[in-house]
């Protein structure tokens, strides 16, 4: 007996959702240890001795037990809905990512389009939180967020389209299967275009995820905590979860688009593990950048996007298209 498709999808979604949450929890631990070592520290150690293996769980428990404070003057509906509106698109992007051939919730034929469209939706939750908190810091942060997302989603999309052009498909599993072979990953191909595209993708990702050096909307030295300054307890945890889920999602996408997804030596069942390792590699790159640079100012961020990154990504996309056309559809 087979389950109806809806039930199948529900079960798959349930598994993926929980896996994502678990991964996010441990990715935060990874980042904390990584940053700590970079800063001559040790990082979480005692909870789950040694090396803090239980720290994420302890953090989650602590946040659940925290008092939930709603500012008196907040727009209650907007304020309470914002964390969910923020979290849903961040988790939803995992729906379309295939972790191995056939292993995923839905391998859409427009997978990457879905991914890009949904991941841009997080701005709604962000803006709701900033507006609904009725806090000046949050409001300024929300305004900055809108600016930044608009500026950086364009280069993000353009660079993500480079592999699409090279692979000739929008289906993510197709993009992976176009990268088979020795040095078949897109990062090695198209005469160096791939590397440039990966770099541009990383920069755009960092900006679209509001990480240092582009974290002007969190900007705790200016805006305290930005749009989430009024959130506490579980709502704060949801926002945090969403943020890291988004980062992880784009790391997976980056590994999939440029680093060949689940392709790797060894038997087929190693595929998801390769994929995970590559995603973590991308994540660590982002983290490394994050803990190395100082934040830049809002106008400079916009300048970098519009003056450097957007032209560069358009040029890259055009060059990729030209390369494909010039070779007449053969592998480039």
């Amino acid at each position: 007996m087979t389950l109806p498709p809806l039930a199948q999808a529900a079960i798959a979604a349930f598994i993926v959702l929980n896996a994502v949450i678990l991964m996010v929890a441990y990715v935060t631990l990874l980042e904390r240890k990584f940053a700590a070592r970079m800063q001559s520290r040790i990082g979480p150690y005692y909870v789950g001795w040694p090396h803090g293996w239980l720290q994420p769980i302890a953090d989650a428990l602590k946040l659940m037990l925290k008092e939930d404070v709603v500012p008196a003057a907040a727009d209650r509906w907007v304020y309470n809905l914002a964390p969910i509106a923020f979290l849903v698109p961040c988790v939803l992007i995992f729906a379309t990512i295939p972790f191995a051939p056939g292993l995923g919730v839905a391998d859409l034929n427009i997978g990457i389009l879905f991914f890009l469209a949904v991941s841009a939706l997080e701005i709604v939750g962000l803006f709701m939180g900033g507006w609904g908190s009725n806090n000046k810091y949050a409001l300024i942060s929300a305004m900055r967020a809108v600016n930044q997302i608009i500026s950086y989603d364009l280069p993000f999309i353009f660079t993500a389209l480079v592999p699409v052009v090279l692979a000739g498909s929008m289906q993510l599993s197709e993009i992976v299967s176009a990268q088979t072979g020795l040095f078949g990953w897109f990062v090695f191909r198209a005469w160096g275009l791939g590397v440039l595209a990966l770099l541009a993708y990383l920069v755009a990702t960092i900006a679209a995820e509001n990480r240092v050096p582009f974290d002007i909307l969190e900007a705790e030295s200016e805006l305290v905590a930005g749009f989430r300054v009024e959130y506490s307890g579980m709502k704060f945890a949801l926002i945090q979860l969403g943020e890291y889920a988004h980062i992880l999602g784009t790391s997976f996408l980056g590994a999939l688009l440029f680093l060949g997804g689940w392709l790797g030596p060894g038997p087929a069942w190693l595929g998801p593990i390769w994929f995970l390792l590559k995603a973590i590699f991308v994540f660590l790159l982002i983290t490394w950048v994050r803990w190395s640079f100082v934040r830049i100012r809002v106008d400079q961020i916009l300048a970098i996007s519009w003056k450097l990154l957007l032209p560069l990504s358009i040029v890259l996309l055009m060059a990729a298209a030209f390369a494909v056309a010039w070779s007449g559809g053969a592998r480039v």
């Binding site: 001559s40 240092v212 050096p213 934040r295």
Partner: peptide, 21 residues
């Protein structure tokens, strides 16, 4: 200062910790 311009959750914190060291 780097903490101020760089963010407590970013490179500023790294320089801060180096300087504090």
């Amino acid at each position: 200062w780097c903490l101020d311009i760089g963010g407590a959750l970013g490179g500023g914190a790294t320089i801060f910790l180096y300087a504090i060291r």
